[in-house]
Design a protein around this nucleic acid. Sequence first.
DNA 1: CTGAAAGCGCTAACAT
DNA 2: ATGTTAGCGCTTTCAG
Lengths: 347, 347
Amino acid sequence: MPEQSPGSRPTLEAVAARAGVSRATASRVVNGGDGVRKPLVDKVLKAVDELGYIPNHAARTLVTRRTGAVAVVIAEPETRFFSDPFFSQQIRGISKELTAHDTQLVLLLVEGPGDFDRIARYLAGGHVDGALAFSLHTDDPVPAMTRRAGIPAVYGGRPSWTADPGDQAVPYVDADNRGGARLAVQYLRDLGRRRIAHIAGPADQTSAMDRLDGYRDVLLDVDPTLVADGAFTVESGARAMAELLERRPDLDAVFAANDLMASGALRVLRERGISVPGQVALVGFDDMDSVASETDPPLTTVGQEIEGQGRLMARLLLRALDRERTGSGDVPESVITPVTLVRRASA
Amino acid sequence: MPEQSPGSRPTLEAVAARAGVSRATASRVVNGGDGVRKPLVDKVLKAVDELGYIPNHAARTLVTRRTGAVAVVIAEPETRFFSDPFFSQQIRGISKELTAHDTQLVLLLVEGPGDFDRIARYLAGGHVDGALAFSLHTDDPVPAMTRRAGIPAVYGGRPSWTADPGDQAVPYVDADNRGGARLAVQYLRDLGRRRIAHIAGPADQTSAMDRLDGYRDVLLDVDPTLVADGAFTVESGARAMAELLERRPDLDAVFAANDLMASGALRVLRERGISVPGQVALVGFDDMDSVASETDPPLTTVGQEIEGQGRLMARLLLRALDRERTGSGDVPESVITPVTLVRRASA
DNA sequence: CTGAAAGCGCTAACAT
DNA sequence: ATGTTAGCGCTTTCAG
C-alpha cells in the first residue's frame, strides 16, 4: 500500500489511464462494476490496487448529493448521555448497523442552548444524509431542524407529545414500556402479592410515564399511597422505598421503574431487615448490565434489547435514505420493541 | 428562514445574482469578507440571509481539500469506552473545543479487528482532516493508519512504547500519573504512615504503571508484599485489599491506583471493622465524579482535569491542522497535565 | 477592490 | 458495453 503525502493522491483519471479505459468505465467498476466486461473490470481493479486509489469523497458527494454519513444528535444537557449505559448501548447498536452499511456516524453533542443554531446549520449544510436523536421533549427543536434541513430522522424513545405509535410525523423506536410494566405487575400478582407498590421515574420521561401507566393498567384504581416518585437513580429509589415503607408498612411487593431505583430500594429493605422476596417481592426494569444480576438477591426485572433498539433506529433511517434515493419503499414507521420478564431471585 | 426541499438549496451563484456581484465576491464575503468594500459586503450578507444560503460543504472541500471534521477513533474492544466516565469526559472536552472551532467530530468505533481496514480507508479517504485516538497499545495500528493517510493525529494517554514525553513521533496528552502518585504517597507518609500499601492497576495500561512508578519513587525498595494487583474495577480493588490484609495485617495506609479500586478496598476495610482513616488511611486517584465524594468516608484522592485533557487534545490537533494550512507554527508536542491532591476524609 | 475563468474529482446522461 | 461530455458548487489565481 503506497504511502500518500497529502494532496497527491491518485485520481480516477489516473486509474483510467493506467487501465487503458475511460474515466466513466473506471468509475463504474469502482462503484460495483455493473455492466462492465470482466477483463476490463480486472484491469481497473488492478490499477486501483497498484495506485492505491481511494475515491475522493467530496467530489462524489458533490455530484451524488449523498454524504454517506448520518448525525447522531445528543441533546442531553445533563451528563446523562455518557453516564447512562442506556445510551452507550444504543450508540453501539447504531454504530454497528451504520458501519455494516458503510455509513459514518457524526456525533453532535449539544453543550448548551446556543448550540442548536450550530446544529441546525450543520444539518442543513448537507454534511449528513439523515439524523438520529434521542428522547425528545415537548419543545424539542430537533424535529424542526431536520424538517427544515429536508433530511429524514428517526428518534429514540417516544417523544413526549405523541402517545400514539402510529403518528407518522416522527418515527421512533422505543421499548414496550407499558407492556413491560404490565408483565412485571402481573407477575407479582400471580405470585399472590396484593399490595404492590410502584416506584415511578421522573414525570418528564415518557418511559417512566409509560411504565406507570402499565402498572395502573393491571392495578386499576390503585391506592395513590402505593406510588412513590423517584428519579431513576439509586438514591431516589432508596428514598422512595423509605417513604413507601412509612406510608404502607403492609406492602408486600414493589415494582420499581428501573433497576437503579430497585437496587436503592433493596438496600433500604435490607437495612430494615425486611426479607426479599420473602416479605417483599421486588421487580425492576431494564435488566441493566452491571446492576440487575449483581444485587443481593439478584433482581427479577423486565429486560429489553437496548443495542437492538439502536440497530433498529439506524436501520429505519437507512431505509428512509434508500427510499429517498430509489423513490420507492415505505415510509418508516415507529417500532415498539418487545420486552421480556427476566426471573432472578428478588421476586 | 426558508424551508428547503432537498436538492433545491440556493447556491453561491444565486446569492451573487441577488446581490448584484460576482460569485467571487460573494465567496469572499461568505468566507470572512476580507478585502471587500463595506457596501458590497452588506449587500451579499443581505442576500445570504434572504435566501437562507448555506455553503455546500462538499463543493468547498473539493477545492480547499479541508473537511472541517476530525475523527475520534475509539479502539477499545471492551465496552470500556462508554462505561468509563473517563472517556466520556474527555469526549466532552474534545467536543467543546472542536465545536468552538467549527469542526465536526466523527466517531469511529472499532467493533472488531476487521474494522481496522474500514477505519484505515476512512482516514485515507479524505473524510477528515485529522484524528484523535486513545490509549495506544504496543502494536496499535492507528498510528500507522494516520501516517499513511497523511493526516495529523494526537493521542490520549501515553502510548505504551514511549516513556519519554519528548518523543515527537506521537504527540499525546496525559495526566501526570507518576507525579500524582508521588503526591499521594508523600502525603500518606507525611501523615506518619509507615507501611503504605499499593493497589496497582492493570500492567498493560501506562497510567497504572506510571502510578506504580510514582509510588516506588517515594517508597524506594518497598516490600513487594505491600503491592497487590487490581484491574481498575471495584471488585478487583476489594479482592486486592483482602489479599493485602492477609499478607500484611500491619499495614497502616493504602494508595489505590484509582477511585474505583479504592471504593472496593473501602468496602472490605469496613467489613472487617477496620477504621478509615483511623487504622488505615486510604488515597485514591482520579477524583471520579460520582465515586470519590460519595463513599463513606469520602475519598482523599488525586484529582485531574479530565475534560481539560480532552480540550487539550483537540487544541493540539487543531494547531497541527493550522500549521498544515499556513505552513508555519510549531509541531505539536506532548503535554503532561497537572494533578492535585484532593483532601477529603479517608486520609 | 472586483470580476472572469479555470478547475477540484467525480458521476450520469447521452452517444456510439 | 464503453466512451464523451457536461456539470455538481465552490475557491482562487489572474486580469482589469
